[in-house]
């Protein structure tokens, strides 16, 4: 059995979290280049040019890409043959604490949804654990902005609603909230599972690169189709009107109950900040 020290987790995650907030990464930059070429509205192109400049300044000057440095979301895939010396959840939260303090990131997390006191260090993170084969720990970090998160939705569709119902729900969700979520967007769709499973899948999907494609050709085609129809909504960059509303759509699927068709749409903004580390 391999041993990983809790401190190693903390250090590695802190680095990933700071870096994700300063450097939007090559895939998002490529998505911005393609968006600039595709956008037909001048106001929309100006927004994309500003986003590109912003990405450069943030990376070169080591400052946050967006002031909302997000809710820290961590997908932790823990190999069943790895032993963590210390408390893994504490180690993850310590990594977030370190990143948000040392990296001059904004602390946006409140202790309680009703009493609303800032915890002061952006913890606790939302952590999704999965036990996987092997002796490694893979952490996927996302800084999830509140503005785009607020435009996300889940629905328990009827099985009879079928594929058309799913498409309609995705379109309605982006149509209603897209302009407020800092488009161009990355849309994560979680399909199937139970109520909560669909939401977790949609988050996983939203934290991916817009160029990721579902390995199943049926869903890969649906991702492309949804991207095309979403870009016909006309919302455009920042909602000023235009032909690029989304940079990409990612779908994650899970088996579901015979009476159910859960679908969740997690809206992510152009500040799709994520990073991974394996220990």
């Amino acid at each position: 059995m391999r041993t990983v020290k809790a401190e190693e987790v903390t250090e590695a995650l802190a680095k990933v979290a700071v870096n994700a907030n300063y450097d939007i990464g090559p895939e998002m930059l490529r998505a911005f280049d393609e968006a600039l070429a595709a956008e037909k509205s001048e106001a929309g192109r100006e927004v994309i040019r500003q986003i590109q400049k912003n990405a450069r300044i943030a990376r070169e000057e080591c400052v946050p890409y967006c002031q909302d440095t997000g809710f820290a979301v961590v997908f932790a895939e823990v190999g069943q043959d790895v032993h963590v010396e210390g408390n893994l959840t504490d180690a993850i939260n310590a990594g977030i604490r370190k990143a948000y303090s040392d990296g001059y990131l904004r602390k946006s997390i409140l202790n309680d949804p009703i009493q609303r006191k800032n915890t002061g260090d952006n913890t606790p993170a939302v952590i999704h654990y999965e036990v996987v084969p092997g002796d490694k720990i893979r952490l996927t970090f996302g800084a999830k902005g509140g503005g785009s998160e607020n435009m996300s939705k889940q629905a328990m569709l009827k099985p009879a609603d079928g594929l058309e119902g799913v498409k309609k729900f995705v379109l309605e969700t982006v149509s209603a909230g897209g302009a407020n979520a800092c488009p161009p967007l990355v849309i994560g769709v979680g399909l199937g599972g139970t109520f909560e499973k669909s939401c977790i899948l949609s988050k996983k999907a939203a934290m991916r690169s817009p160029f990721h494609r579902n390995p199943d050709p049926f869903y890969a085609a649906l991702e492309d189709e949804l991207k095309e129809s979403l870009n016909k909504l006309g919302i455009g960059p920042m909602g000023y009107g235009g032909t690029v509303t989304v940079l990409g759509v990612n779908i994650e699927v899970h088996p579901c109950h015979l009476v159910a068709l859960p679908v969740a749409v997690n809206v992510n903004c152009h500040a799709d900040r994520h990073g991974e580390v394996e220990l």
Partner: peptide
């Protein structure tokens, strides 16, 4: 706007707009 913390030597942290509604 609710900026991110100011790094030493800078005037202000990152300072983009928040949603108006």
């Amino acid at each position: 706007v609710g900026p991110s913390p100011t790094k030493p030597g800078n005037v202000i942290g990152s300072a983009g707009p928040t949603t108006a509604y």
